[in-house]
């Protein structure tokens, strides 16, 4: 995967281009489901959650939903965790997931737009300094 060696200005272009991928917007994606996969998360079963989410995505045939992985969300005691981001909404963090739960979340929140209260921890993002 040899790519072109970047220069400083090309770095900026990549930044702009990929910033769009990180925000949920019309055109790119309407919703992102982020499964938190650090060592802890995986030990707690995050891989199964990811598979279940991917399967749900496939079954739903939605084209505007992204299922992606990221790292540890920090709250190991409540792993596995996932974050659901819907366009125009603050992200919602779900905790103590099971395959069952993520399927329900996918159906009701990601596709249906309704937060699954029972499994949700909180909304919003963390405070960066």
């Amino acid at each position: 995967m040899e790519k072109k060696k970047l220069t400083v200005s090309e770095l900026k272009n990549i930044r702009q281009e990929f910033q769009e991928h990180l925000t949920v917007r019309a055109g790119v994606a309407r919703a992102r489901v982020i499964i938190h996969m650090g060592t802890c998360g995986i030990a707690a079963g995050a891989r199964e959650i990811l598979n279940a989410a991917l399967k749900a995505l496939e079954e739903s045939q939605s084209k505007d939903v992204i299922v992606t992985t990221s790292s540890c969300a920090g709250l190991c005691s409540s792993e596995p965790m996932a974050t659901v981001e819907i366009q125009h909404e603050p992200p919602v963090k779900y905790i103590n997931l099971t395959e069952e739960k993520i399927r329900k979340i996918f159906k009701e929140h990601v596709l249906g737009g309704k937060i699954v209260k029972e499994y949700a921890l909180a909304t919003g993002s963390e405070t960066t300094a």
């Binding site: 060592t39 802890c40 995986i42 030990a43 707690a44 190991c76 005691s77 792993e79």
Partner: peptide, 18 residues
Amino acid sequence: PGCCGLAPVITVGDEVIG
């Protein structure tokens, strides 16, 4: 193995179990 959040932890091969 760095999974203290799930203590007590064992590893079996490469697998970490919390």
